[in-house]
Measured scan of single mutants.
Amino acid sequence: GSMEQGFLPKGWEVRHAPNGRPFFIDHNTKTTTWEDPRLKIPA
């Protein structure tokens, strides 16, 4: 929902695949990933 959306880094969006699995869109680089960007520790 909109709650989890608010925690994503700037430029990211979460969508759900037809099977219900969430995936993440990085509008900054125009890419998608199954990995939650929030789980990655910034270098």
Rank of each mutant, 00 (worst) to 15 (best):
T31S: 08
D26Y: 06
T33I: 05
P37H: 01
W12F: 04
K40D: 09
G1V: 12
G6R: 10
R21I: 08
R38V: 03
F7D: 15
I41D: 13
E13W: 04
K10S: 12
T31P: 02
K30V: 04
R38C: 04
P37R: 03
G20T: 15
I25Q: 03
D36Q: 03
N19D: 14
H27K: 06
S2C: 14
A43S: 12
N28W: 06
K40L: 13
R38E: 03
L8F: 06
P22G: 04
D36L: 01
E4D: 12
T31H: 07
T33E: 03
G20E: 04
I25P: 03
M3G: 11
P37Y: 03
H16I: 15
T32L: 15
A17W: 06
L39I: 12
T31G: 02
L8P: 00
G20N: 05
K40N: 12
W34P: 00
R21M: 09
F23K: 04
F23P: 00
E13R: 02
M3W: 11
G1L: 13
W12C: 03
H27C: 12
R15D: 03
D26E: 02
E13T: 05
P22Q: 09
N19F: 03
W34M: 05
P9Q: 04
V14E: 09
T29A: 05
F23H: 03
V14S: 04
N19Q: 03
N28E: 07
N19S: 10
T32H: 07
F23V: 07
I25N: 00
H27M: 08
G6L: 14
G20I: 00
R38G: 05
I25G: 03
P37C: 07
D26H: 06
Q5A: 12
A43R: 09
I41H: 13
A43E: 11
W34K: 01
L39Y: 10
R15H: 07
P37I: 02
I25K: 03
I41N: 13
A17V: 05
P22W: 07
F23C: 15
G6N: 10
N28K: 07
H27S: 06
E35F: 15
W34C: 05
R38Y: 03
E35A: 09
F24D: 04
V14R: 06
A43W: 13
W12E: 03
E35M: 11
T31E: 06
W12M: 00
F23S: 03
D26R: 00
G1K: 09
N19Y: 04
P22A: 09
E35I: 14
T33S: 07
L8N: 01
Q5N: 13
E4Q: 14
F24L: 00
W12P: 02
P18K: 10
D26K: 00
E4C: 15
I41L: 14
H16Q: 09
A17G: 09
I41T: 12
G20K: 05
R21D: 07
T31L: 08
E13D: 02
A43F: 13
T33H: 08
P22I: 14
F24V: 00
V14M: 15
T33D: 01
H16V: 15
T33L: 04
R38H: 02
R21Y: 06
P42L: 10
K30I: 05
D36N: 02
N28T: 07
R15W: 06
D26S: 00
P9L: 07
E35D: 13
D36I: 02
M3Q: 11
S2N: 11
P18Y: 08
R21S: 06
W12A: 00
D36G: 01
R21V: 09
R15L: 08
K30G: 15
E13N: 00
P42Q: 12
L8S: 00
F24Y: 11
G6Y: 11
V14W: 03
E35L: 15
F23W: 06
P22T: 08
T29M: 05
L39E: 09
P37M: 01
P9V: 05
L39S: 11
P42W: 09
S2R: 09
P18E: 09
G1I: 12
S2D: 11
I25W: 07
S2M: 13
D26T: 01
F7T: 15
P22V: 14
D26Q: 00
T32E: 07
R21H: 07
P9R: 05
M3R: 12
S2L: 12
K10M: 12
D26F: 06
P9I: 05
T33N: 02
G11C: 07
H27L: 08
G1P: 12
F24S: 00
I25E: 02
T29L: 05
T31Y: 07
R38M: 05
G6K: 10
T33W: 08
K40H: 14
E35S: 08
K10T: 10
W12I: 01
T32R: 11
Q5E: 12
G1D: 12
P18D: 07
L8Q: 00
W34D: 04
P22F: 08
A43C: 14
A17Q: 06
M3A: 13
E4S: 14
T29R: 06
K10L: 10
I25V: 09
T33A: 03
T33V: 06
D26G: 00
I25Y: 15
G11H: 03
K10G: 08
R15Y: 07
E35W: 14
P37S: 01
A17F: 06
V14K: 07
H27P: 05
K10I: 10
E4W: 15
R15K: 09
R21A: 07
P18R: 09
S2E: 10
G6I: 09
T29N: 09
K30E: 09
P9W: 07
W34I: 03
N28G: 05
K30L: 08
V14A: 06
G20P: 03
N28D: 06
K30Q: 13
D36R: 01
K10D: 10
K10F: 12
P9H: 05
F7P: 15
P9T: 04
F23I: 09
G20R: 04
I25H: 05
P42K: 10
A17R: 05
S2H: 13
I41S: 13
T32W: 15
I41G: 12
L39G: 12
D26L: 00
G11T: 01
T33K: 00
H27A: 05
P18W: 09
L8T: 00
T29Q: 05
A17I: 05
W12N: 02
G11L: 01
H27G: 05
N28M: 06
T31Q: 08
V14N: 00
E4L: 14
A17N: 07
E35P: 02
P9F: 06
G11P: 02
K30P: 00
F24A: 02
L39R: 07
P37L: 02
Q5W: 11
D26A: 02
F23L: 08
R15Q: 07
P42E: 11
P18A: 11
D26W: 04
I41M: 12
P37W: 02
F7I: 14
P9E: 04
E13F: 05
K30D: 10
S2P: 12
F23Q: 06
P22E: 09
L39H: 10
H16G: 04
G6T: 11
T31F: 08
A43D: 12
P42S: 10
W12L: 00
K10H: 10
K30A: 11
K30Y: 07
A17L: 11
R15P: 01
P9C: 08
G20C: 09
F24C: 09
N28C: 13
S2G: 14
G20H: 05
D26M: 01
L39M: 12
L39N: 12
Q5K: 11
T33M: 05
F7W: 14
D26N: 11
G11Y: 03
G1R: 08
P37V: 03
N19H: 04
R15S: 06
F24I: 01
A43G: 12
K10Q: 13
W12G: 00
P22D: 07
W34H: 02
W12Y: 03
H16L: 15
R21N: 06
R21E: 08
T32G: 06
A43Q: 11
I41E: 12
W34Y: 08
V14F: 04
A43I: 12
E35C: 15
I41Y: 13
G11N: 06
K30F: 07
N19W: 06
P18V: 08
E13M: 02
T29H: 06
G11E: 00
E4V: 14
T33Y: 08
T29V: 01
A17P: 05
D36Y: 04
R15A: 07
P22M: 10
D36E: 04
D36M: 01
G11M: 03
W12V: 01
S2A: 14
R38L: 02
F23R: 01
V14P: 00
R38Q: 02
T33F: 07
F24M: 01
M3N: 11
T32M: 15
D36A: 01
E4G: 13
N19T: 06
L39P: 08
F7R: 15
F7K: 15
F7L: 14
L8H: 01
G11S: 02
A17K: 06
P18S: 10
H27N: 08
R38I: 00
R15E: 03
D36T: 01
A43Y: 13
N19L: 01
G6W: 14
D26P: 02
F24Q: 02
T31M: 08
F7N: 14
G1Q: 11
